[in-house]
Design a protein around this nucleic acid. Sequence first.
DNA 1: ATAAAAACATAACAAATGTTATATTTTTAT
DNA 2: ATAAAAATATAACATTTGTTATGTTTTTAT
Lengths: 230, 230
Amino acid sequence: MKNFYSQFDFQSELLFEQLTSEEKKIVYNAMEPLIIKKGSLLFYEEGIPTGIFQIKKGKAKKFKRGFSETEQIFYIYTTGDVLGYHALFGEERYQDSCEALEDLEVNFIAKDVFFKLLEDIPSLQRVFIKNIGHEFGVLANIIAVLAQKNLNARLAINLLILENRFQKHDEENGIDLSREDLANIIGTSSESLGRSLKRFKDDGIIEVDKRIIYIKDKDVLFKLLNIEFC
Amino acid sequence: MKNFYSQFDFQSELLFEQLTSEEKKIVYNAMEPLIIKKGSLLFYEEGIPTGIFQIKKGKAKKFKRGFSETEQIFYIYTTGDVLGYHALFGEERYQDSCEALEDLEVNFIAKDVFFKLLEDIPSLQRVFIKNIGHEFGVLANIIAVLAQKNLNARLAINLLILENRFQKHDEENGIDLSREDLANIIGTSSESLGRSLKRFKDDGIIEVDKRIIYIKDKDVLFKLLNIEFC
DNA sequence: ATAAAAACATAACAAATGTTATATTTTTAT
DNA sequence: ATAAAAATATAACATTTGTTATGTTTTTAT
């Protein structure tokens, strides 16, 4: 089996790592630092692309409102992640929205500057398009989970994914998300989410302090998946 | 609201339509006709990309097996559709599998030939990458539906989508899919799917002959969505 | 520091979906 | 054309999830 986490991770923090240190220098010189306040949008559905972002510090949610009012969150970006490039390559509008979950430090590369980079660094376009292909597979995996797993299994999977993502770059421990956001990732109501969380608490699988969730027994979560996967 | 159907349609049948008639001629000259038997794979997950396909006649399902054994179908291709190009651009392996649902007539463009085309026709790459961006949005919409809609609503949406797609290019009327495949699109068991189909039949919304589903009252299906979307 | 607002936790009941079992229809192979 | 196999239809019961309601904790604004 492929690595569990990479099946659900865009791995966009590795995009620039594939460049030579010379090329990396060119890219990082093109960036301008920005602060984005909690709750504001980096970009929004149907908006005209302005450039790409790399998160220096903080978390952001990528979501889409269907015809229903509830937002479906399909990715949480965190430190190191690069985002906002799909629409640039396609010369299209944004397909989704992205909102800062806390005050965000980002590096921004304006559209024109980015296109100049693509000219100057031949391998850059390939690296990006390759990642879009990978992200395509991630979305397909998310579809499979939502379609095939029950609530407890979806919660287990997402707790594992989120803890892994959050501790990868931040030294942050635990999962700090609002119950509503977490429910909108998992595809349920916050009340039903609460019931599953309570069961996990009672079983000693997680601990909760304020709203932060700490995984105490990763093995049981994986085992829970294996059983229900058969 | 954007067109309902285009939110769920890859629209890959329009890819070559955006070229000049001169360019189109070059592309169509590069194709070689193939017959693919019902049940065989056009490509499979983790396989090495061989080229791209355009379906001349027939239907194919694109799916992915999660860690569970059940296959999650996330797209049904039909006449005119172009597929198999994601992995080529990314110089990656296929992220998913594609199986012929009936005997298929396809046009095939081998990998090397396709790369030559990309050199000869400057606008071709942009057209493809733009479509990958669009497809990304389609997957996000599918995620929203699976996460937020109940079984009847998911069935209603998918019946509308499939009927529209099948009659777009074939003169075919009605939806001819196995109950298992339909269940694996909608994210349920074939028994639960059967129950919803029966309810739709009893309500006069659909008629079923053999296994082919005919929509009798599209308005009620749309109305069913609007009500449940609020 | 305190009051008001927002977010969270929990329980009881209702509704939807999953599961198991059996009968019927359709397709396939001879 | 016929028998065997596969796919489909349906029902009854079990389980999961949604919904409504209420109390508590945490955050925010003054």
